[in-house]
Nucleic acid binder design. Structure first.
Ligand SMILES: [Zn+2]
Ligand SMILES: [Zn+2]
Ligand SMILES: [Zn+2]
Ligand SMILES: [Zn+2]
Lengths: 131, 131
DNA sequence: TTGCACACGTTATAGCATAACGCAATTGAT
DNA sequence: ATCAATTGCGTTATGCTATAACGTGTGCAA
């Protein structure tokens, strides 16, 4: 299955994230959308749940925040393991993917007979400009 | 250098984590330590900050929880990148380290001229018993 | 003695996330 | 068409996670 038509709330949240420079918390999104009628956190969280499910948005666990997916290709397939660099200086987040890491992690985890459902890789530090 | 003598609060928090089967949130730790005189979250968070700094404890970003480090060796050196498998069924957390992943990530990040300060790798899924 | 660093205690507040209720619109049988 | 199931939506209330800001006491060095 691909991505279904987004509902109004989902589109608004997606738009807010897509036009944002960096990651946003759910409450920041809420504040951005008050003028479009948003009143309560659940409106944001429910939209985010769907967008995460569709793979249009990623959650940054170490930030309790969300970013629009920056994958170039269409979102009609699982894009395996996603990793992020997160600059503590300017807040810039860069998404990247790597087969080698994915396979190495997969092998290690197989050794534990562990069944992976979701992998989080987040690298905090400073980007080139903020070094 | 190395790990200084722990204060009373730090020892209590460390003990609670070391004797726990799985990860604990700061508030769960607080509840476990009420009988030893803990009254407020900050008592826990301040101790955790130090224990994290000394490398005796790890924070699980995807759980907002903490675990005692299970590294076999002494804690007198940085143990590079730490990764975890986290079972959604039984809560079991397994810490592991891998040079190959560390170097691959390091190379990828160097390509962005990014300076790493902290790396988070957490794999959620189900362990052998909970498959 | 004075100043500093550090741990500690307490109260209050900020920030993140979900439970539980009810309603409305959609879909897809029967 | 009708009914049931699903899904999205709005609202209120609540719970969980983390830190700000203040003051105290202790140990140690200048
Ligand atoms: Zn992506
Ligand atoms: Zn930067
Ligand atoms: Zn460790
Ligand atoms: Zn398990």
């Amino acid at each position: 299955m691909g991505t279904p038509q987004l509902t109004k709330n989902q589109s608004l949240v997606m738009g807010a994230l897509a036009h944002s420079e960096g990651p946003m918390s759910a409450y920041t999104i809420l504040d951005k959308l008050r003028d479009q009628g948003f009143r309560a956190p659940l409106q944001v969280y429910r939209a985010l749940d769907k967008l995460l499910e569709y793979g249009l948005v990623h959650r940054l666990e170490s930030l309790n925040a969300f970013v629009a997916c920056t994958c170039p290709h269409e979102h009609e397939h699982d894009h395996g393991v996603t990793a992020f660099t997160i600059c503590e200086g300017c807040g810039q987040v860069t998404e990247f993917h790597d087969e080698a890491i994915e396979e190495r992690l997969s092998a290690l985890v197989r050794g534990q007979s562990f069944k992976t459902e979701k992998t989080t890789i987040e690298i905090r530090g400073h980007c080139k400009s903020c070094a």
